[in-house]
Design a protein around this nucleic acid. Structure first.
Lengths: 95, 95
DNA sequence: TTCAAATGTCAGCGATCGCTGACATTACCA
DNA sequence: TGGTAATGTCAGCGATCGCTGACATTTGAA
């Protein structure tokens, strides 16, 4: 599943936990966090700590893949010339 | 690339930023954070906020995929029976 | 080399983290 | 229906967030 928001992440974690038949306390122990943390994450807490999130995914056996290597930036045309970058720099130097 | 640690994440972000020929200030503005935040993230800051991280990846056009649906948990056998879950619950109820 | 841009470091600030522990609510089985 | 497990909520605490602004260092082009 594509993760774009903390809520997406929470849903993935909760689904996976249930599939593994774990309760929140047990999962919390495996990750090394409090049960409160698991509750918050599953509810889409937006300010959770990156490292804890990664540990949770690891504990649940959920690989996280970032599609680097990709040629186009968000909603840009597939061009060898980086219009976005050029415009960005132009804007910036207009001080 | 597979993301397992905050440092992995930082590397992906930095590589992508450079590929897009953006400097840290410009990227920070696009994400809506301070330049300091970009510096910290690229250095693998482990306690960064989840939502900001997701916004950064989005701004850079890096899709994040979580492999849910997968049948086996980390380092477990491929079995319909959830040994891990059973053991976990057994341990827990031994109070 | 010289100079400017890019990057990195620091300190101080208000806001929020994740934790604990207790309690409330919901789900589910006998 | 009763009772237990699972889940959710709350408050208070020390620690750390991300921000700003100034300054130091590194990088790269002329």
């Amino acid at each position: 599943m594509l993760i774009r928001t903390p809520a997406d992440l929470g849903a993935v974690i909760r689904d996976r936990r249930k599939r593994l038949k774990l309760d929140q306390s047990t999962l919390a122990k495996q990750i090394g966090v409090s049960r409160q943390w698991v509750i918050d994450i599953e509810h889409g807490h937006p300010r959770a700590e990156l490292a804890l999130v990664l540990r949770a995914l690891d504990a649940l056996g959920i690989p996280l893949d970032a599609d680097d290597q990709q040629m186009t930036s968000r909603r840009s045309a597939r061009s060898a010339i980086d219009i976005n970058a050029i415009v960005a720099k132009a804007k910036k130097s207009r001080t």
